[in-house]
């Protein structure tokens, strides 16, 4: 099952992806503070693509909870989570990757969804239909999308 997800995610990203380097959601290794050192794909993230993931409702939708000056062109920034200005200075890549993969490994009480996790949910649904999930879940973001967002956040240095 893990392999299927990795494969599906890999194909969605198109050519140039070294599948051998793909870390499946269940295989992610966390450090003591919830950080994730190893890239999920081995392919450097694309900051522009990461920005798109963050501000698009249909992809990461990060803007719903997090404000940032850098995407001030996008209306209505949420305030449920911290503003992200300067986060590339005070967080490491590994910390940001860990928070994106599963923020609860860093902040146990966080309300932030885990964007690269596919198991361990209560009554998982089939996306936003309200019906039960059919078969294995896809993570909310692909491995490469996580890397892209990490790369983008690292550019937010005030």
């Amino acid at each position: 099952m893990k392999r299927t997800i990795a494969l599906a995610a890999g194909m969605a990203m198109g050519a140039g992806m070294a599948l051998a380097d793909m870390v499946a959601p269940a295989d992610v290794t966390f450090g003591d503070y919830g950080d994730v050192e190893q890239s999920l794909t081995g392919v450097p993230g694309d900051p522009e693509a990461g920005r798109e993931v963050m501000v698009s409702k249909s992809i990461g939708n990060c803007v719903s909870c997090h404000a940032a000056e850098d995407y001030a062109d996008v209306p209505f920034h949420g305030e449920v989570g911290p503003a992200l200005d300067g986060i590339g200075e005070y967080r490491t890549e590994a910390e940001l990757r860990g928070i994106l993969v599963n923020a609860k490994m860093t902040f146990p009480e966080s309300v932030m969804p885990a964007f690269y996790k596919v198991e361990g949910f209560t009554r998982p649904g089939n996306a936003y239909t309200g019906k039960a999930a059919e078969g294995p879940l896809d993570p909310l973001l692909t491995a490469q999308q996580i890397e892209d967002v990490v790369a983008y956040l690292m550019t937010l240095t005030d």
Binding site: V111, P113, F121, T122, R123, G125, A133, L137, L140
Partner: peptide
């Protein structure tokens, strides 16, 4: 207080 679904949100979360 149960965190439901893939987003793991409870009523209390919001």
């Amino acid at each position: 207080y149960t965190r439901f679904g893939q987003l793991e949100l409870s009523c209390a979360s919001c």
